[in-house]
Computed example of a mutant assay.
Amino acid sequence: MSAPLTLTTHAAIDQIPAATWDRLGDGNPFTSHRFLSALESSRSVGTGSGWQPLHLTVERDGQIVGAAPLYAKSHSQGEYIFDHAWAQAYARAGGRYYPKLQCAVPFTPATGTRLLSPDPGVRQALLAGMTQIAERGGASGVHVTFCTEAEAELGEAAGFLPRVTQQFHWLNRGYGSYDDFLAALSSRKRKALRKERQRAQEFG
């Protein structure tokens, strides 16, 4: 029988040892302790920013075995998920949309792991913990954004509602230079891009 899991919230990423946090991650620079710490030390997040850190850790036998970047939000800015219509509908129905909990990397619309642990049971505990924190703190709900497909499936199994959005990605198909990229396009598109680039350089 495995030892019980304990959940703890942290008001600053520096309350968690950097080596411990990074050991749980997958090497993604945006969920690294250093990146999240830089956001806090620069005051991009924290008091007065609308992003209040509530980073979540899971412990077993006194050792941190899981973590997630978690924030209490008082607005919907800096998420790149536009839910202002949800907030307005919530208010019209007599509810209070903010605060809400956001498991995300602030100002960074890059997909990556959000539930930092190789153990599926610990990742489930992180999701359950976020829900408990929301209920206890009066948050309207929990949002896990720009997570991996596997995490989205785990969240859906835990009762989270999936949200489908659209992103545009540029892929380097072996281009050695900008001219190589242009050569793969039609004449009309090449001409348009060259004009745009020239205007940008003139104003740069």
Score class of each variant (00 low, 15 high):
Leu161Pro: 01
Gly66Leu: 02
Gly204Pro: 00
Ser177Gln: 07
Gly48Leu: 07
Leu154Trp: 04
Glu149Tyr: 06
Gly46Met: 03
Leu182Arg: 05
Gly48Lys: 06
Thr9Tyr: 04
Gly78Val: 05
Gln132Gly: 12
Arg188Gln: 15
Thr108Gly: 07
Ala192Gly: 12
Ser76Ile: 07
Ser140Leu: 02
Asn28Arg: 09
Thr148Lys: 06
Glu196Val: 14
Arg199His: 14
Ala72Tyr: 07
Gly94Glu: 05
Tyr175Asn: 09
His10Leu: 11
Val164Asp: 12
Lys189Ser: 12
Leu127Met: 12
Phe82Gln: 14
Gly94Pro: 03
Ala93Phe: 08
Gly25Arg: 05
Ala85Val: 15
Thr145Cys: 08
Ala183Gln: 10
Gln102Thr: 09
Pro99Val: 01
Ala183His: 09
Thr9Asp: 09
Ala139Leu: 04
Leu127Tyr: 04
Asp119His: 07
Leu24His: 01
Gly137Trp: 02
Gly204Val: 07
Tyr175Pro: 02
Leu171Gly: 06
Gly62Val: 07
Ala87Cys: 08
Gln52Leu: 15
Gly112Ala: 10
Leu185Pro: 01
Leu116Gln: 00
Ala139Val: 07
Gly66Cys: 06
Leu70Gln: 03
Glu202Val: 11
Tyr98Gln: 01
Ala12Asp: 13
Thr9Phe: 09
Phe181Thr: 00
Leu56Arg: 00
Thr47Cys: 11
Ala157Tyr: 09
His55Cys: 06
Ser186Met: 05
Glu153Ala: 11
Ala192Pro: 02
Asp22Thr: 01
Arg123Tyr: 00
Ala91Cys: 08
Ser41Cys: 12
Asp119Pro: 01
Ser117Met: 04
Ala89Phe: 08
Ala128Asn: 10
Arg163Lys: 13
Thr111Pro: 11
Ala200Thr: 13
Pro118His: 10
Tyr178Glu: 11
Ala110Val: 15
Arg60Lys: 10
Cys103Leu: 08
Ala72Thr: 05
Ala3Glu: 14
Ser186Gln: 13
Tyr97Glu: 02
Ser2Met: 13
Leu171Trp: 11
Ala87Tyr: 01
